[in-house]
Nucleic acid binder design. Structure first.
Lengths: 208, 208
DNA sequence: AAATTTAGTGTACAGATGTTCATTAACTTC
DNA sequence: GAAGTTAATGAACATCTGTACACTAAATTT
């Protein structure tokens, strides 16, 4: 049941599209919080009842906007794996680049939505998808039975989201390739246990 | 400018506390979205104007509730470092345990707020604090000039948030100690480059 | 203790919300 | 192409929101 399903009544498709476009347009000029449903339907030139027929509140409308974006995210990272059964670090990096490229492609909307803090569920929704990433394989090949898969998976997904958020906050000052490089660098740069003890300013007693 | 500042007019302190308590109480029985400001002030037995004198909308009230919680988070992780200038992996793990213990102490409110998806900014706010963690030191001692500090910091902070969210979603089925162990295990378990190539199901041609 | 400042109250009002319902218009099915 | 279905409309209504203002009650300042 995709959001842009073409098997749906044309009237619904048109109304929903107009509502989405209107919301995006309004978000470019005013704060999400200040946008009323009345604003949206007036710009969309639709009856207010039409909005309530499809959505409960404006967040739900924005959610649907983002579902379209996330659908592209999924396509993006899956693409390099289409015809590959064996993968190496190189194919992984291709997949990682695709993710960042996808974000760069939708830079406008990511900026608009992430900076507006309009969608409380967006972080979790993105991470839900990131958890399905081939990056999980990165964990699998170094079998450490001590590590809890679910925790590690959530760790990894939110970590990548963290990089994306930082990227958005810099107004995309890095390239997608650079972001992918950084992610792989961070993932592969693990500490050597022996070097763990370090001094900060000066050596001091263990307790004072 | 703390939220529970005692240097503030007693009337303000009382009103704010009553409003916070009322909101929390209401959140236990109904969805955040369905709670109206009228509900809050009626339960608090205060005039609606009093709410608007201090807050713009209910999210702002909830934000202040969480600021009190976050204040405790900060105290918690700083505590082990009070009298230490040299730190080792052991002291780090103590600090990490303190974070998870703090979350466990406020399990009720973390569950209430994170599961309600009421605060779009909460993730970012928590991560803002996590970025200040001594974990940064963990990065510093293995100097890799290729790694972008800001990106790595955001990566690490959101990664820990990811673990916390997963923990909340399991209704705290693990202990704080276990969570800390897992975090340290994940952080220190880095792949060896040589073993990077793995096969999934069967070997296949590079492209089809 | 008196003077001043400021928080909380009660009322009022315009606009937004969320829902209902009868009516019209567009689409789907046969 | 006709019949049946369902989306969109317009109007109406109770409730909530956000703001304003004059008033009082409690705090702080001197």
């Amino acid at each position: 049941m995709a959001t842009s399903n073409s098997g749906i009544d044309r009237r619904i498709r048109k109304s929903k599209k107009t509502l989405k476009d209107s919301l995006i347009a309004l978000m470019k000029s005013k704060d999400f919080r200040e946008i009323t449903i009345t604003d949206i339907v007036e710009l969309a030139d639709l009856n207010r009842g039409t909005f309530y027929k499809h959505y409960q509140y404006k967040e739900e409308l924005l959610e649907e906007v983002m579902e379209d974006v996330i659908a592209d995210l999924i396509i993006s990272y899956r693409e390099p794996y289409k015809h590959v059964d064996v993968f190496t670090i190189n194919e992984l990096s291709v997949s990682v680049i695709k993710i960042f490229e996808h974000v760069a492609n939708f830079a406008d909307i990511y900026t608009l939505v992430l900076k507006s803090n309009a969608l409380p569920t967006l972080h979790d929704r993105i991470c839900e998808e990131l958890k399905k990433l081939p990056l999980e394989d990165l964990e699998d090949y170094r079998p450490n039975p001590k590590i809890n898969k679910e925790l590690a998976s959530s760790y990894q997904a939110y970590a990548i989201l963290g990089m994306i958020i930082e990227w958005v906050n810099t107004d995309f000052k890095y390239s997608a390739e650079y972001m992918a490089e950084q992610l792989l660098e961070i993932i592969t740069n693990k500490p050597v246990n022996a070097v763990y003890k370090i001094s900060k300013t000066c050596k001091a007693g263990p307790q004072e």
